[in-house]
Each structure stands twice: as structure tokens, then as C-alpha cells.
Design a protein around this nucleic acid. Structure first.
Lengths: 110, 110
DNA sequence: TTTATTCATCGTAATATTGCAATATAATAA
DNA sequence: TTATTATATTGCAATATTACGATGAATAAA
């Protein structure tokens, strides 16, 4: 089917998987790393930097924007996209609850 | 195309996205949460617990096993799958490098 | 041996994702 | 106005993912 049955899962589970899904492509990981590295807005070099066609990059940016990890818009003839710090922090909080659930786990099964 | 161009990305970028991809489905998030909650092996209640058909669950378990986050096998007539603690910790380390890259970031662009 | 139970695998249908060429849009430059 | 430049959108082909019925394999129970 290809259609995820989101309705049978909790809000938290859907939220975690939505975030993870966005990180689930190396181009989007690369875009975010580049944004942190240049420490400012994207200024057109992203297509060369990543090595994918311009429409493909645009599509990945759209998904990153949709989930709120980047913000900004085109200004004049160049984009101004950068990390949304507040949402990035919130995202980390959501993920860390999931990732750190092993802290109080003392089982020894397998 | 549907085919990710992995070869143009770094090993780290591909590794991060591979991990994230596995978390990119609520059923797999739910399975992992359940495994931490019951604090032992899965004992057959997973299909009822999650609410998807048995072959579907089996498929998700296969992916979790493939990436190393769970380990175990069937023993007799029941499965014995549980979290692979060592790999879970390694996974967290890999992800945290990516997630915490904002720590030294003082920019103020958008 | 036969039957029941449990999980894996196979096959397949439906939907999603990825990538890009072509085109559209919008702002600036000449 | 007419380029030019930069990004977004559209449309489409190829591949991937999700889900499940049917079936297979392995063990345990009768």
C-alpha cells in the first residue's frame, strides 16, 4: 500500500517519526550541516555544494521548511534560509525523550 | 526516480540518514518504545499491541534488526527480540553529533 | 502422526519518495 | 521593455515503502 496507518499511533509516535523521516535522507542532513557550518543563510551555493539538481534541492528545502527546521524565504534573487533555532531545540527535546528511554533500563534479556 | 544518490554524500551523512530512516515510521517507534517498556524480549503480543498485521510487524522487526537496534531470534514458537544496548548507545552517539551541532553557533541571521 | 501455534517469507497492490527536465515566477540589470 | 539571474513548481519516470493475504517452516501439543 505505501500508506502509513498514522491513526493507530500516538501523537508522540507520529511526531517522532515525522521528524526522523526528514532526517532520513542524506541530502537533507547535508543541507542542515552546511547551514550550521556557514552559520548564516543559504546564498545560492547549495546546488553546487550538495551536487543535486536545483529542483531537487528546492524540494528538500521545502520539506525542511514544512517541518519547521529551517525558516526564511527568497529575498530578491537569492534565498535566505537558515536554521530555526527555537524549533531545532524543541525537536531535540522531543527526540531526546525517545532516544534516552534506556537510561533507567536494567534488564538483561538477550 | 525514488533512488537516493548515496554515493555523493559522506559516510557520516549516509549513516545518520539510515538511522533516521528506521525511526521514520511510527510502528517502529512504537515497537522500540514497547521493548523498553516491557524491559525484556517480545513475547508475541506485539501484533495486538501495535495493531498491524503479523507480516507487517515482522517486516518492521526485520528492518530494526538489519540496522542493529534489536537483536535476538525465534526460540521455539516465540520470538525473543530485544534492544541491542551497545548498538543503541552507539547510535545515540552518532546522532548526538548531528543534533548538537548548534551548541557553538552564535549566528543571528533570519 | 496429526494438529495447532508462532513467526518468517513471498507475492502483490497501493501509495510515497526521489530526481530531473521543462517551465513558471519574481526581482533586478541593462 | 527586455534580458538575466535565482528559485519554485509542474509533470513524469523510476524506485522504495507500506500493508496484508497466502503460504512456508519450525516447534510443541495431542
Amino acid at each position: 500500500m505505501g500508506l502509513t496507518k498514522s491513526e493507530i499511533f500516538t501523537t508522540e509516535q507520529n511526531e517522532i517519526s515525522s521528524i526522523a523521516k526528514v532526517f532520513g535522507h542524506p541530502a537533507r542532513v547535508a543541507i542542515l550541516q552546511h547551514l550550521f557550518k556557514i552559520n548564516s543563510c543559504i546564498c545560492g551555493d547549495l546546488v553546487e555544494e550538495i551536487g543535486l539538481a536545483q529542483p531537487t534541492i528546492s524540494q528538500h528545502l521545502k520539506e525542511l521548511k514544512k517541518i519547521g527546521l529551517i525558516k526564511g524565504n527568497i529575498t530578491g534573487t537569492s534565498i535566505c534560509y537558515c536554521i530555526d533555532k527555537e524549533n531545532w531545540t524543541n525537536m531535540k527535546t522531543t527526540l531526546s525523550v525517545f532516544l534516552n528511554q534506556d537510561l533507567n533500563d536494567n534488564s538483561n534479556c538477550c
